[in-house]
């Protein structure tokens, strides 16, 4: 292993351990996992009764000798909707907080000069910190997914299949990209301002806009959301029909899509919901079709995470690690 890789891994390990020892972060992590657990437990309990009803129907149909039995309308992965929504909102706050703590810790402890007077470059510091945060997010996402999957199996009585596991894994990768982007945002905002707490406020302001306001505007303007259950479903149109209708409103749709595409949260939501069968219209399709349909969203997630990481690297490289005072 090269010396540079060793230093990056040391910083990553340091970041990971420091994050785990932060009380504020621990509280947020517990809130997220608890909220997810409650959400999945409640929906899994309801799912179990629906599954029992379907099993009773199938048994009765088979007993009557019916050869054509309706497939189950249930989609077990869709019960993880709450988990993804909490990840989208609380997860982003956790990521911003982690970014803030990562930068403010060095400032408060005045340890940046200790790091930068060693053979550690700004790029290595940024990469190490980023990898440490990825470690935290991986742990968090894995814990949340494990809680969800176990709840589905034990309470919902439906263990997910290998293809569903693959789709869930892809949704988790999207979550990782999503949280990484917010981590970088929190760290950049904190590093750019004199008072670290102001950086946190700025990042939370952007979170509010990106996670809550822009998607809400986009949803409100969405024609399909004008009727409960969906306008196009009420009109009896499938996905292709919906696309055909919307070609008559291209200008309007372009503006609405533009607003939504500015929102990182919306891209994550679209991808995660497509992978987890939350949107009924996606359920009949296989993984290759879903990946093709959501390539735009995963592309945007990747682009946001990459650009923000490069921004973080640039910020930390240019940051002058001057101790107190500057001139003396």
């Amino acid at each position: 292993m090269s010396e540079s890789s060793t230093r990056i891994l040391q910083v990553a390990r340091h970041e990971y351990r420091a994050a785990l020892r932060s009380r504020a972060l621990t509280v947020l992590l517990v809130i997220l996992v608890t909220a997810t657990a409650v959400s999945v437990f409640v929906s899994a309990t309801d799912y179990a009764s629906q599954l029992a009803e379907y099993d009773a129907y199938r048994a009765a149909a088979q007993a009557q000798g019916l050869t054509r039995i309706a497939p189950s309308p249930l989609a077990v992965l869709s019960l993880l909707r709450g988990a993804f929504e909490y990840m989208e909102i609380i997860g982003a706050i956790i990521a911003i907080t982690l970014g803030y703590l990562s930068v403010s810790r060095e400032r408060t402890n005045r340890t940046l000069p200790l790091l930068r007077s060693r053979p550690l470059t700004g790029t290595e510091l940024a990469t190490g910190s980023f990898l440490g945060a990825l470690g935290i997010f991986t742990t968090l996402i894995a814990a949340t997914a494990a809680v969800g999957v176990v709840a589905l199996g034990t309470i919902g009585h439906d263990w997910i299949s290998p293809p569903q596991t693959l789709r869930l894994t892809l949704a988790c990768v999207a979550a990782l990209l999503y949280l990484s982007a917010f981590y970088c945002l929190g760290a950049i905002a904190t590093a750019k301002v004199k008072v670290p707490a102001n950086g946190l406020l700025i990042a939370l302001g952007i979170w509010l806009l990106v996670v809550l306001i822009l998607p809400q505007i986009g949803d409100t303007l969405d024609a399909d959301n004008q009727l409960p259950g969906g306008l196009f479903q009420a009109l009896g149109l499938n996905h292709d029909g919906e696309v055909a209708v919307l070609t008559h409103f291209t200008g309007y749709e372009r503006v609405r899509t533009g607003i939504e595409e500015a929102s990182l949260a919306k891209h994550f939501e679209r991808f995660a919901f497509a992978m987890s069968d939350v949107k009924e219209r996606y359920r009949p399709y296989g993984l290759p079709w879903l990946l093709n349909e959501t390539r735009n969203d995963i592309g945007w997630l990747l682009a946001y995470a990459t650009v923000l990481f490069l921004g973080l690297r640039r910020t930390l490289t240019r940051q002058q690690p001057i101790p107190t005072g500057g001139i003396s």
């Binding site: 408060t108 402890n109 101790p323």
Partner: peptide, 15 residues
């Protein structure tokens, strides 16, 4: 940076 050691003023280290 391989040749030097540095103690800044009022360093607090990682508490």
């Amino acid at each position: 940076t391989r040749q030097i050691g540095y103690l800044p003023a009022d360093v607090r280290m990682y508490g």
